[in-house]
């Protein structure tokens, strides 16, 4: 061990609060990017799982589920997109719980950084993983016969809507993760809640084919609105498909946009406040 600590006191670079906030958000995002690089299972899982779903659904169910005026591959892709990005948003929950457990949140909270930065970095990490998943899924989809039947602008809007919805959900999950504090519980509970939520919807079968109680649930299910919005924007709704009576299914894009705004408006401040006051252990 060296005998002295021979350094002059380093100086903070004076910067505006906005620049500091951007810096903090970037640095915590970079931390999560490095994690994706170091723990390749995350990336492998998030790319292989969607490929598996695309292949399983298109080849296993294509023969038994009849979509009038279209193909099952065209129908199913919006459902798989929605399911994948919804599950992708749960990382924020388990990662915040893990960070609390590891004590690194305490380190961050004693630094003169913006209290929202850790959450911004965390949710950005989910956004990146979901973006990669989207590219992988779309490529796989195009190979197995899915087509975009709308304009490039509409297709981009579909992608943006899916990613933004998942991003807003990441903030919800981050808040839940800090409240529950156990990464294992987060993983199990999100599986138990999100799996039925994505399956009792119009994601994998047309909602009108479901028995009445399930159909009612499916029509009001926010995941159905997301799927319907993506389907419309990608031009994957067959001409003669049944029109739902439910408002959220008739205006799916607007519904999803409202959902995104509501989730962000409630859970961004809640999560930031939770982070600022949380005490570990």
């Amino acid at each position: 061990m060296t005998a002295t600590i021979p350094t002059p006191t380093p100086n903070s670079v004076a910067a505006s609060p906005v620049m500091n906030w951007l810096n903090d958000g970037w640095i915590t995002t970079r931390r999560n990017l490095i994690k994706i690089k170091r723990v390749p299972d995350i990336l492998v899982f998030t790319t292989l799982q969607p490929i598996m779903f695309v292949l399983l659904f298109t080849y296993v169910y294509a023969g038994v589920i009849d979509i009038p005026g279209s193909t099952y591959a065209e129908f199913i892709m919006a459902g798989i997109f929605a399911q994948t990005v919804v599950f992708g948003s749960t990382y924020s929950g388990s990662a915040m719980a893990q960070d609390l457990k590891d004590g690194i949140i305490d380190r961050f909270r004693t630094l003169p950084m913006s209290p929202s930065a850790v959450l911004v970095g965390r949710t950005n990490g989910d956004l990146l993983i979901n973006s990669i998943s989207m590219i992988v899924m779309m490529t796989t989809g195009l190979i197995v016969g899915w087509r975009i039947n709308s304009s490039p602008l509409e297709a981009l809007a579909a992608i943006a809507l899916l990613l933004l919805f998942a991003y807003a959900l990441s903030w919800v999950m981050a808040f839940i993760g800090m409240s529950v504090r156990s990464p294992e519980v987060i993983n199990n509970v999100s599986f138990l809640v999100l799996f039925p939520l994505t399956f009792i919807s119009n994601a994998f079968v047309p909602a009108e084919t479901l028995p009445t109680p399930l159909r009612v649930f499916a029509e009001f299910n926010p995941v159905s609105a997301l799927v319907q919005a993506a389907r419309e924007l990608f031009g994957n709704t067959p001409a003669g498909s049944a029109q739902s009576e439910v408002w959220t299914q008739q205006h799916p894009v607007l519904t999803v946009l409202i959902g995104i705004v509501v989730m962000l408006a409630i859970f961004v401040p809640l999560a930031v406040r939770k982070f600022a006051n949380i005490s570990s252990r």
Partner: peptide
């Protein structure tokens, strides 16, 4: 390095 950046050292 991360801690330095979060102290805004540049």
């Amino acid at each position: 390095d991360m801690v330095g950046r979060l102290y805004h050292l540049g």
